[in-house]
Amino acid sequence: MGNVALFQAAEAGAGIACFTQATVRGKPAHVLLSVEEYQRLAGGNTSIIDVLAMPGVEDIAFDPPRAVIHQRPADLS
């Protein structure tokens, strides 16, 4: 995997989010965050329903055509 170096980027308990950065061959490759910091950055515990909800679209008319699916027998020869 090459040379991997870990750097402690912040002190825990100092009012700063704690994370560790791993570099591979001198380039940043990965970051290890606390769960709390990840949730803060990711927006907390938002559900997919909340993300996809679009307030105000209730008044938009949406009447899609019915899908027509044609079936045919399987050819097992």
Rank of each mutant, 00 (worst) to 15 (best):
M1A: 11
G56V: 04
Q71S: 13
V24H: 05
L32I: 15
D63E: 13
G26H: 01
A10E: 11
A12C: 09
A9D: 15
N45K: 13
V35C: 06
T20W: 11
R72K: 13
Q71K: 10
I16Q: 08
A61G: 01
G13S: 03
L41C: 04
E36H: 08
E37F: 02
H30C: 10
G15R: 02
H70G: 04
Q21L: 13
L33W: 14
S47Q: 02
T46V: 08
G56H: 02
P28Q: 10
L52W: 09
H70R: 15
Q21W: 01
D63G: 01
S34G: 11
L41N: 03
I60A: 05
F62E: 03
L32Y: 15
Q71R: 09
T23H: 03
L76H: 12
K27A: 14
R40Y: 05
F7M: 03
I16R: 07
V24L: 13
G13W: 13
L41D: 04
E37K: 04
G2N: 10
G43F: 11
G2D: 14
H70V: 13
A53V: 03
I48S: 06
A67H: 00
Q8M: 09
G2M: 06
L6P: 01
V35A: 13
C18A: 12
R66M: 06
L33S: 00
G13H: 09
G26R: 03
V68M: 01
K27N: 12
P73L: 07
A61Y: 02
V24M: 09
H70Y: 08
R72F: 15
E58M: 08
L32D: 03
G2T: 05
R40P: 00
D63M: 13
L33Q: 07
R66W: 03
V68R: 09
Y38I: 09
V57W: 12
F7R: 07
A9M: 15
P64V: 05
T23D: 08
G43A: 10
I60T: 06
P64A: 10
L6A: 14
P73H: 07
A53I: 01
A29H: 14
M1L: 12
M54N: 08
E58F: 10
D75C: 12
V24N: 03
E37T: 12
I69A: 10
Q71N: 14
Q8S: 09
T20Y: 12
V35L: 14
I16S: 05
P73R: 09
D75S: 10
V68E: 14
R72W: 11
A12F: 08
A42M: 07
Y38E: 09
D50Y: 01
G2I: 02
G15H: 02
K27P: 07
F62N: 11
P64L: 10
L32G: 09
A67T: 07
G56I: 01
F19V: 03
G56Q: 05
A67Q: 05
P73S: 13
Q71W: 14
Q21C: 05
A61D: 07
A10M: 06
G43E: 06
Q71G: 11
I49P: 00
M54D: 02
V24S: 02
Q21D: 05
L6S: 09
A53T: 15
A5G: 01
D63P: 00
A42T: 07
P28R: 11
A9C: 15
S77Q: 10
H70W: 07
N45H: 13
Q39S: 08
P65F: 04
L76P: 00
A14L: 10
S47E: 02
V68F: 02
